[in-house]
Simulated scan of single mutants.
Amino acid sequence: MKQLEHFDTIYQRAAERKGGESHLERLLSTPLRKDEIAVISDDRWLSAFSMKVFQSGMAWKVVRNKWPNFEELFFGFKIDPLLMLSDEQWETKATDKRIIRHNSKVMSILANAQMIHEVRIEHGSLGKMIADWPMDNLTDLWLYLKKHGQRLGGNTGPYALRQMGVDTFLLSGDVEAYLRAYKIIEGGRDTKRSLSQCNQAFAHWQHQSGRSLTHISQIIAFSCGDNRIIQ
């Protein structure tokens, strides 16, 4: 790992590229507090995970436009009714013309409902587990979702967490390129070593800046790559 840039340097470069500090600050999204995360119901987590699974490899707008149909067909993503469906009922839902018909993605809804059910037994709810997760080991939460869920690896799980307001950095194309330039990520992006070094780097910048992981991640993205102010 190279010596890291001071966060103030990253911030000033991002501000310059985005037309000043006030413009940059308006672009940042603020995560929810832990107590707000803890009370999010399990059905909303399953809906968010499922949406990101379907958006993977597809136009996000197309999936969003169809999502009310998904909510209706899958009982508002309530865990218990979904777990009571038979194999034949799942097969019927996977071919329903009101949604995007993709059998393996539809079946990931069942697998992730089962994961959330298991978490609920141990922790009370998925929201409580995520709220209690140590942020200095954030990528272990990503790996948990990948291991125990279905189709939640790569950026899918982290993007769903961000959508739900969880304070998380993202390894978007711009952020990953920056981290590779400083040898924070070397070789495989999702190796234990790379993810550990990402945790350490973001903890370092958080100590310097006092900002959320979400803000730090967004500011890094705005400081490099293809991000430019729209005139």
Rank of each mutant, 00 (worst) to 15 (best):
G124W: 11
L126K: 11
K128E: 14
K128Y: 02
I130R: 12
I130S: 02
P134Q: 01
P134N: 01
M135C: 10
N137G: 09
N137Y: 11
L138R: 14
W142I: 01
W142K: 02
G149L: 03
G149W: 01
Q150L: 12
R151T: 01
R151W: 13
L152F: 07
G153F: 06
G153S: 12
G154I: 00
Y159H: 14
A160P: 10
L161F: 00
L161Y: 00
R162S: 09
Q163W: 08
G165V: 04
V166C: 00
D167A: 03
T168M: 04
F169W: 12
F169Y: 14
D174R: 01
V175I: 09
A177E: 07
Y178C: 06
A181K: 15
Y182K: 15
I185E: 08
G187Y: 08
G187C: 05
R189Q: 11
R189G: 07
D190I: 05
D190R: 13
R193D: 12
R193A: 13
R193E: 15
Q197R: 15
Q197G: 12
C198E: 03
C198F: 09
C198V: 15
N199F: 09
N199S: 05
Q200R: 15
A203N: 13
H207N: 13
Q208P: 01
S209E: 00
G210E: 04
G210K: 08
